[in-house]
Design a binder for these strands. Structure first.
Length: 272
DNA sequence: AGCGGAACCTGTCGGC
DNA sequence: TGCCGACAGGTTCCGC
């Protein structure tokens, strides 16, 4: 479901609701996967802790608990965080209930059970964050970085963009959108992009992601904000999920292909 | 070392 | 109507 803009939207939404709140009770409603560690340990670490900040790294949510460590969350495909008033009983796909001292309920819901929650003593000890590439808006994400990383890489550029070690936060929707903006065909070998195209790739990545964050992300089917509203960027997609529809630039039919088991959308005329 | 494929799990949709 | 396969915004592990 969510890529950088959607996760950023969730982080901002949560921040407004839960910073300063103390966790009163942790209720795990699903037996597997979601909470990746021992449930009693997880519960003990969280109960009584206070949310000091909600941040994002790549597509991970980081709930800082001050001296009580950090809660790492990942929405994967269908995960959602919802801030709610108390409920009489859990919804069908509710996986974890976190009761806050104010009486509000922080719900982690996930139909497909791919999402994860995990507690760590400190951010520096989170293995999942170790190999991540630079954030798209950081100074380290620049043309030289791409040149260095992509030299002699024969894999196709679109799957390369999904590799979180190259740059963190791009997912399947925005990878297609970014390549459309720079007129690069998704099957081009990563090491065959010209220097100017790599510069354009940096720019387009930052532009697309910035616009998507401003529109509160993309809601194709599942994604919802913390307040259950949809994002709006789906109204501005140029190629994603537009197979057979006319390219907004040249009128040619948008095409779909599969790369590494994921759909890619592109304009065969605008992208070479 | 780098890359592709399978696996994780549930639901929806289109074709027959 | 029912069944079956394809597909869904992600990451991780396992081979080659």
């Amino acid at each position: 479901m969510p890529e950088l803009p959607e996760v950023e939207t969730v982080a901002r939404g949560l921040r407004a609701h839960i910073v300063g709140e103390t966790l009163q009770e942790v209720l795990i409603l699903h037996p597997t996967l979601i909470v990746k560690q021992d449930r009693e340990h997880f519960r003990r670490q969280l109960e009584g802790a206070t949310f000091e900040q909600v941040g994002r790294r790549a597509k991970f949510l980081l709930f800082s608990l001050g001296s009580r460590g950090v809660l790492l969350g990942h929405l994967r495909m269908t995960g959602k965080f919802i801030v709610s008033d108390p409920l009489p009983e859990p919804g069908k796909h509710h996986r974890v209930w976190l009761t806050l001292e104010s009486g509000k309920l922080l719900i982690f819901e996930d139909m497909r059970c791919f999402g994860t929650l995990e507690w760590f003593p400190e951010v520096s000890r989170i293995p999942q964050l170790q190999a991540l590439g630079p954030e798209p808006f950081s100074a380290e994400f620049n043309r030289a970085h791409l040149e260095g990383q992509l030299a002699h890489r024969r894999r196709e550029i679109k799957p390369a963009l999904l590799d979180q070690r190259l740059v963190a936060g791009i997912g399947n929707i925005y990878a297609s959108e970014i390549l459309f903006r720079i007129g690069v065909h998704p099957t081009r070998a990563a090491d065959q992009l010209r220097t100017a195209e790599l510069g354009a790739l940096v720019q387009a990545t930052q532009q697309v992601l910035t616009e998507a964050v401003l529109k509160n992300g993309t809601s194709i089917s599942d994604f919802r904000r913390v307040d259950d509203k949809t994002g709006e960027f789906q109204n501005f997609l140029q190629v994603y999920d537009r197979t057979g529809q006319p390219c907004r630039q040249c009128g040619t039919s948008i095409e779909r292909l599969v790369q590494q088991q994921r759909s890619t959308f592109y304009c065969p005329k605008c992208q070479r």
